[in-house]
Design a binder for these strands. Structure first.
Lengths: 235, 235
DNA sequence: TTTAAAAAATTGGTTAACCAATCTGGTCAG
DNA sequence: CTGACCAGATTGGTTAACCAATTTTTTAAA
């Protein structure tokens, strides 16, 4: 009986095996930055897996910047030495699914930074779209409807206004995972709702005034409850 | 003549077009969380693109947590409402390649946090692997060899010790991109090298002592030069 | 009418054949 | 001897056929 299937999906397992084999191959053949990997066909034959599996593994390593495949030419190891290559692949193989605490922790770190950057760099257009998101949020809340989505979009608008595409991307990656864990949200406590609106409003105004310190403070307050909530209920 | 090809690769372009069409379809058909998308075959026919293109687009949206495809069953929209779905897809389509400033900015944010978390949570095993990375780094530097890789692995070991898998993953994503932009590193200035060793050593000791504040301070010092360097030379 | 079993259709995943761009080695004109 | 050029092999990417699991429909027995 396959033991490895119990925890992770079969797919992920074979994927990781291929990645490990690729690492070993790079070590064995002493491939250095810029060198060419064997062709996908050869690899699929050598590893006894389908070519699409090979392609998928290469794509993942390419996503992490460790490989670079050029059409009709070959797949090449990036400008990263063997030591780093080994270390990084080992880390990638050891990666587990992110737990909820890690997600929230990361989100708070990001939000406290992006709100400062947004206050500092926001254009008029940024301000406009944040305001729109805020209005949409208000309307939903006042109608006592579930406003999780509008809440989310408000925060993403801030991330976009931060002018840092990397943080923006990462925010996009983690937010839906958090949201889906949070659908328990829909309680229409009038006081709580009004509090949410006020906090969002204050964050917006701080960004508008370009007061970075105030923006950070207001965001901290806004997350205070969430922070407590998560650490108390989850694990 | 195709204008859109000038900036981005053809591949990325068609990919984005498919994603936009998927968004429009979800809006048109009024698909709600949990609803099933048309099959890949139908989509490829309807959009007049190959099925592999469709699959790739779906995989990307799945990566961002917006879709979920079940084998032999279908692809479903995640537990995210239409408003959020639209907003997020628009953001994803607007994503550009990260610039160097954004990368460095994000890295510094991460490192200042992970070093604190590492100081707080590191196990003995974590400490051991950080120490090993430090020793490897020292040896290379003292031999006046290029130690960029060992430098990198030291920082990744700290990220791993932070106990936050999300931040660890993100660090893995951005680090190689930074490294490749930094191969200009290989100057053997004895003073500079000794400084690097000292800084790393001090960070390690702070983590060992579990002094979170000190760890953060030492990391800040370590990045001081880099920060200046990047902002002065690049754009 | 109800329900359970079975068969037909549909699905995402996998495999194999195919394509056009690229690289390689040799050839031949100068 | 040099360099431009051409043919064949090699490459990642694309397309189409196939598979096994799942879902839906049909059917027949209670």
């Amino acid at each position: 009986m396959k033991l490895e299937v119990l925890l992770k999906g079969d797919h992920q397992t074979t994927q990781n095996q291929i990645i490990a084999k690729l690492r070993d191959l790079i070590n064995l053949k002493n491939l250095e930055p810029g060198d060419k990997l064997p062709s996908e066909r050869m690899l699929s034959e050598k590893f006894e897996v389908s070519r699409s599996n090979i392609r998928e593994a290469i794509q993942l390593l390419e996503f992490y910047g460790l490989l670079k495949s050029k059409p009709q030419s070959g797949t090449f190891v990036a400008d990263i030495g063997q030591v780093a290559m080994n270390g990084m692949i080992d880390d990638i193989l050891a990666l587990g699914d992110p737990d909820f605490r890690a997600l929230v922790e990361t989100r708070i770190l990001f939000e406290l930074k992006t709100v400062r950057l947004a206050a500092q760099r926001r254009s008029e257009a940024d301000l406009e779209s944040i305001k729109n998101a805020l209005e949409a949020y208000k309307e939903k809340v006042l109608n006592c409807e579930n406003a999780v989505q509008e809440d989310l979009l408000f925060h993403l608008a801030i991330a976009k206004a931060s002018g840092n595409s990397t943080m923006n991307t990462f925010m996009l990656m983690i937010t839906p995972k958090i949201i889906t864990d949070f659908e328990k949200y829909h309680v229409c406590d009038k006081g709580q709702a009004q509090k949410g609106i006020t906090e969002h409003q204050e964050i917006f105004e701080a960004i508008q005034k370009q007061d970075t310190q105030l923006a950070k403070e207001k965001m901290k307050i806004h997350f205070g409850a969430l922070y407590q909530y998560c650490y108390n209920t989850k694990e």
